[in-house]
């Protein structure tokens, strides 16, 4: 992998990355009507973020075997979409990546998840540090209603007891990157509950950016939103992709095609969910290797 030299590099490269993103974002906006808008980020061209690797991951809820033997490699700085019909284990899978899976009573898992080569399930690991590095955006926007917009964005710092030199700069940076700054800059002191659903979701994205994660997991982030807000969030994803590794679960195949470099197809055929196929997104949609993938992406079931 040629991408690993990055995380300790200086901010000059950061800026370069940011400029590049603006370009890719605008070009992707131009192509947004084409569903198969691919190859925006060929592997290796982006150098931010961290690699994440799942090896032989199984998941159980009590005796119910929900996910079987998933091995997936997420290169640094790429966007991977997980698609598949409901109940195929996509959400369960990404929740094993940042150890949110274990919050469900009786949940169990097997296998390894390697963040920069280190197993996040290794004995003695501080789970809170793992979740700081692997952020998550949920299906339903869930800002903290008792906090203001500004407090919401910075809440992660407070929760993880991180110190930061200039809170105002960080606040603005996160909101800009999440594409929300213009809409809320005059009412940072207002309560978050007054925002629309799409704005709340972008606020949640800004909130997860504030703790500088290397990987961002998104569990159907647009499923509760209208098409306009969905497009805004896809822009945000495109913009973020240069600086972190993104894994997004989606039911919307057009969305997978629009935002991702790689797509993995999950399916449960009665038994536990499995990953059927993973490939660059254009291949999954144009010439899938597996018949079941082809049936799904061509809309024959699901």
């Amino acid at each position: 992998m040629t991408t690993e030299n990055s995380s300790n590099e200086n901010s000059a490269e950061n800026q370069e990355g940011a400029e590049m993103t603006t370009e890719t974002a605008s070009s992707s906006l131009a192509n947004i009507s084409q569903a198969h808008n691919l190859g925006k980020r060929a592997p290796g061209t982006h150098v931010m973020g961290s690699g994440l690797e799942a090896r032989g991951v199984h998941a159980w809820f009590g005796k119910h075997h929900a996910l079987s033997n998933v091995s997936l490699d997420f290169s640094a700085g790429t966007v991977t979409a997980l698609i598949g019909p409901s109940g195929c284990g996509k959400s369960t899978f990404i929740r094993t990546l940042n150890r949110m899976h274990e919050f469900i009573p009786s949940a169990a898992m097997a296998g390894e998840v390697l963040l920069d080569g280190k197993d996040v399930y290794a004995a003695g690991t501080d789970v809170t540090k793992i979740r700081l590095q692997i952020g998550m955006v949920f299906q339903k926007p869930n800002p903290f209603p008792s906090m203001t917009i500004g407090e919401n964005v910075l809440s992660g710092l407070k929760l993880a007891q991180l110190k930061v030199d200039n809170k105002d700069d960080l606040l603005e940076e996160c909101l800009v990157r999440a594409g929300l700054w213009k809409e809320v800059k005059d009412r940072l002191g207002a309560h978050a509950g007054g925002l629309s659903g799409g704005q709340q979701q972008r606020l949640c994205i800004a909130r997860s950016l504030a703790v500088k994660p290397k990987v961002l997991l998104m569990d159907e982030p647009c499923s509760a939103l209208d098409p306009g807000s969905t497009l805004r969030i896809e822009d945000t994803i495109n913009e973020l992709a240069s600086s972190m590794t993104i894994i997004i679960v989606t039911h919307n195949m057009q969305q997978a095609a629009r935002v991702s470099d790689y797509t993995a197809f999950f399916l449960s055929e009665g038994g536990p969910g499995q990953m059927i196929e993973v490939a660059p997104t254009n291949e999954i949609f144009s010439r899938p290797r597996d018949k079941r993938t082809e049936n799904y992406v061509s809309g024959r079931f699901g």
Binding site: F144, S155, A160
Partner: peptide, 24 residues
Amino acid sequence: DRIQAAYALGSTKWGVIKAVVFPF
């Protein structure tokens, strides 16, 4: 969902209680 949001931000259990449970 609020509890999970806090955990996903790298919060400790006490942090979750302080930021989410008490205000609620």
